[in-house]
């Protein structure tokens, strides 16, 4: 019985980190209405940034957030402004331009291979960071400390992003643009600037997720791909565009992955995850927490 509780808790912790990695995906989709295939690569870039920041300066791994989140915001903002925006302008009359998806796929390949070229294929890890292998002992249960920190960070980030969207002028403008671009432009909102900011926020959340991963996860050029696929499932499960949904979707997958192996071969948990994904698509295509409306 203890095992199940322990696995559930660890599943929730890891799951909320999954949710954090997917949060940017759902934010960007919610506003731009295109899937960002480069999201995993942005996470990877964030992980390298965090890794080198911590390695070179010797700071506490979580302190890297102060550096990585703004750097990733700028990275996302610039990427959208110079690479993706021209496509949006060229395809002004298309609501969900497919070409943007192809461009983000290109960005994915370029980022991954550029990293491979510069840093090589080897796995890197922050072996001697203060969080490495730390366990919290509660009775007979062991809880991973870096994952606990990650979970807390994920919840704070989700609340912060939610607050920003609800309570600030820029947040309201972003929501307005996500609901009706043309009406938003009649309110004096420059939609392309909103896309830049939304992409920047999405990249920044990927950066925060990267910082929470680096203390216990290897860094290598294709690490993003693992989280990419999981991210897509999480955001569809939770409802595209829903921030809370991303967290909830992540936690569901985390629990399945963590508790499942108690009852079956670990590889079967994947089947359950994908099965659940299909069931949700059939029964509630807008996702568990997604709002059903015309984009």
């Amino acid at each position: 019985m203890y095992y199940i509780i322990e696995d559930t808790i660890n599943g929730i912790l890891m799951g909320s980190i999954y949710g954090l990695t997917a949060m940017g995906l759902t934010i960007i989709f919610g506003v731009l209405k295109v899937v960002n295939f480069a999201h995993g690569s942005m996470l990877m870039v964030g992980m390298y940034l965090a890794y080198w920041a911590v390695t070179l300066s010797g700071m506490h791994p979580y302190l890297a957030i102060v550096l990585v989140a703004p750097a990733m915001f700028l990275f996302g903002y610039t990427l959208q402004n110079f690479v993706i925006k021209p496509i949006f302008i060229a395809e002004k009359n298309v609501r969900e331009p497919l070409t943007v998806i192809i461009v983000t796929t290109g960005i994915w390949y370029i980022l991954d291979n550029l990293t491979l070229l510069i840093f090589g294929p080897q796995y890197r890890s922050l072996a001697d960071n203060p969080l490495n292998g730390q366990m919290l002992e509660i009775g007979e249960m062991f809880i991973s400390v870096p994952k606990l920190y990650g979970c807390i960070t994920a919840v704070i980030t989700a609340l912060g992003v939610y607050w920003f969207f609800q309570k600030t002028d820029m947040g309201r403008a972003i929501r307005a643009t996500s609901m009706d671009r043309e009406a938003a432009s009649l309110m004096g909102i420059n939609q392309y600037k909103i896309y830049n900011v939304a992409f920047g926020i999405g990249a920044a959340t990927a950066g925060i997720a990267a910082v929470t991963l680096v203390p216990f996860y290897n860094v290598f050029p294709t690490v993003g791909v693992l989280f990419d696929i999981k991210g897509f499932i999480i955001v569809v499960l939770g409802g595209l565009g829903s921030i809370g949904g991303a967290l909830a979707g992540g936690i569901i997958i985390g629990i399945i992955e963590s508790v499942g192996p108690q009852f079956m071969t670990a590889t079967w948990t994947e089947a359950i995850v994908y099965g659940l994904f299909l069931v949700v698509l059939f029964v509630k295509p807008s996702g568990l927490f997604g709002q059903k409306h015309d984009w």
């Binding site: 403008a173 929501r175 307005a176 609901m179 009706d180 043309e182 009406a183 009649l186 909102i189 409306h293």
Partner: peptide, 29 residues
């Protein structure tokens, strides 16, 4: 808009999932 012309479009085009107050606040963007 910045120059002072505000167009209230045909069919209202409200931000349907936002509250009335948020709709009004976006109007003052």
């Amino acid at each position: 808009v910045a120059s002072g012309i505000i167009h209230v479009p045909e069919g209202r085009r409200l931000f349907s999932l936002m509250s009335v107050k948020d709709n009004l606040l976006v109007g003052a963007y």
